[in-house]
Structure formats: structure tokens, C-alpha cells
Simulated assay, not measured.
Amino acid sequence: MTPKLLAQFLAVCRHGSVSAAAKELHIAQPALSKQIAFLEHSLDVQLFRRHSRGVTLTESGALLRVDAAEIIRKIDSLRENLHGRGTHVSGEVSVAIITSLAPVLAVDVYQRIDRDYPDIKLNITAMPSDLVSMALLRQEVDLAILPNAATDLPKAQSLPLLEEEFFLMGPPGFAPPSQTIAFSAIGDRPLALPRVGHDMRRRIEEVARNAGTALNVKYESENINLLGALVRAGLASGIQPISYWLDPIAAGRLVAQKIVSPTITRVHSLCWLPELALSPAAEAIRDILLAEVAKMISGGKLSGRQPRTIAS
């Protein structure tokens, strides 16, 4: 069993798919399948259950994932200590980011890493917020960016990155021209919202309950692009933060009105597990994420502001 083999195993864990992991690792799928089969044979356990949608971990696989992640971290840390932390930083870092923020952040973050830390390999995985927190708790990733960390992920160490406000969105001409709209003025217009239980849906419903307002939810989906398509087609209005939609709003393909009286907000935080030491590479990525998000807020690439409070 080698560090390379453990890293390949962890890639399959992250993706839940041998083919997707093979693409990340730049190797052929049959070759990766053989490596995983060899690992299972050498340990004399089944690590994955195969099914039509990919693979899921067995109990033995879940146990190995925790130990393998820690071994890789220790190897990266040892390598940096031997070569000098201050002179050269390299290694692999995995970050899970909620789907609506990952594509917005990725370009600027990768450009900064290519410039300052060319020997760090960063893997950004976009997923719904509940899966982001699960990936961090299962030690599948080193860092995570997600909302509501103080309540939804109390075991994590976290630093607030971005406070977003929610907007009512629709196609051009869907509402009288105005930069804001009162929550009560949304009325009974049909809405396309994330599924029940999604962090955005929970926040919207909390405000609706407090205001004594009933929502007319016509469409539900956890896919942000599907919700956007429904809104652009004029089938329903959407209620979302708008960082993901800044380009179509600027191009006039969508119209967004900030919801007021009351406002709806959520705070995104950068999280990691305090009981696991971050490698020098992961520490570098953490610092870059903090700096780049602040820069993107001030430059208008993210809709929102830096939070006033510090998370635990």
C-alpha cells in the first residue's frame, strides 16, 4: 500500500465514481479500477459497493477513508518540514464549496495559486451545502465553504467569508422597475425555490413564517441551473442570492430586486476540522481563499459584504 494508492482511493471517495476520479487523476479508468481492486485484495476487504450510478463506501471503506486522509496529510506535512515550510510549499488540497459559489470563486483562486503556489494541486468540488458539511466531517476534504456553519457545523473551526442578501429574480419586465421589493409584496406569485430542507429554502421559510406570509412554491429543485431556466422562461420568480447570476443580470437577461422589510441574509464561512492539523499547502489555500473572497467582494465579483462577526 503506497501513498499514491491511498490518494487514488480518496479520489474515488470524493467523486463517488471511478470514471470521474480517473479524469481528475489523468489516468485511464481501467487502470484505476485495477488499482482499487488491488487495494481491496491486499487488505482482504471490499471497500466500495458498485452500482449503476457509481460507487458507495462500505463500512470498511469508510474506516479506511478516515485513516487514509490523515496519512496523506501527515506525508504532506512531513515533506514540507523536510524541505522547509518557508521556502517551498507543495502538496494536494481538496476544498468542497457549495454549488452556487464554486464556479464564481474558482477562476480567481486558481489564478492566484498558479502565480504564488504552482506546486500546490487544488481540487475544488462543487456540491449542495449538506453534502459539503458531510464531506468535511468525513475528512474527504481539507477545507469547506458553506453557509450557516455556526449552527450546521458546530464541530468545525470557521472563519466568516461572505454575507449575502437574497433577491427576487425574474425575466426582463417581470416587475415594475425598482431596486428593492418588500417581502410582503412578493404576494402569491409563483416561485421556483430549492427543495425543502435546503439551506436557502429554510432561510426563506423562516422569514415567511415570522412575517405571517404564505409562499406559492410552484417548482422545486436543488439544481441551481434548472431553477434559473424556469425563472428566465418566465414560469416563476426565484428567491436567491445573486453572485451566481451577476453576468446574466448585467447582460439584461435577468432582473433582480433586493428583498427588504425584512431582508433575508446568509453567511458563508471557511471551515476545517480543528482536531486535524492542516498541511502547509492547506494553510496556504486557506489564506488565499480568505484574501481572494475579500478582494472579489470589494471588486464587485461577489454580491455581498464581509461579515461583521467572527465565527467559532
Score class of each variant (00 low, 15 high):
1 M>V: 08
5 L>H: 03
11 A>F: 04
14 R>W: 01
18 V>Q: 15
21 A>C: 06
21 A>N: 02
22 A>R: 03
22 A>F: 02
22 A>S: 11
27 I>T: 13
27 I>V: 15
30 P>H: 06
32 L>N: 04
36 I>K: 00
38 F>G: 06
40 E>P: 03
46 Q>R: 14
52 S>K: 14
55 V>G: 00
60 S>A: 15
61 G>L: 05
63 L>N: 10
66 V>A: 10
68 A>R: 09
69 A>P: 08
76 D>I: 04
77 S>I: 11
78 L>S: 14
90 S>D: 08
100 S>Q: 14
103 P>M: 05
107 V>P: 07
108 D>H: 09
115 R>W: 07
120 I>M: 07
124 I>K: 00
126 A>P: 12
128 P>I: 14
128 P>Q: 09
132 V>Y: 10
134 M>L: 14
137 L>W: 02
138 R>I: 06
142 D>Y: 07
144 A>Q: 07
147 P>E: 01
147 P>R: 07
149 A>P: 01
158 S>Q: 12
159 L>S: 15
164 E>P: 00
167 F>H: 15
174 F>G: 04
174 F>T: 01
174 F>D: 05
175 A>M: 11
177 P>E: 09
178 S>W: 04
182 A>E: 12
183 F>G: 02
189 R>Q: 13
190 P>I: 02
190 P>T: 03
194 P>I: 11
197 G>R: 03
198 H>C: 02
201 R>Q: 05
202 R>S: 03
202 R>Q: 13
221 S>G: 06
223 N>L: 07
229 A>I: 06
231 V>W: 04
235 L>W: 08
238 G>I: 07
239 I>A: 01
241 P>L: 03
242 I>Q: 10
242 I>S: 05
244 Y>A: 13
248 P>I: 09
248 P>E: 08
250 A>M: 02
253 R>W: 06
254 L>H: 07
256 A>V: 03
258 K>A: 13
259 I>P: 01
259 I>F: 00
260 V>S: 06
261 S>D: 15
261 S>Y: 00
266 R>N: 11
275 E>V: 06
278 L>K: 02
279 S>T: 14
281 A>T: 09
283 E>Q: 14
285 I>A: 03
289 L>E: 09
290 L>N: 12
292 E>Q: 11
293 V>G: 04
300 G>A: 09
300 G>V: 05
307 P>K: 08
309 T>C: 00
310 I>V: 14
311 A>Y: 10
312 S>Q: 14
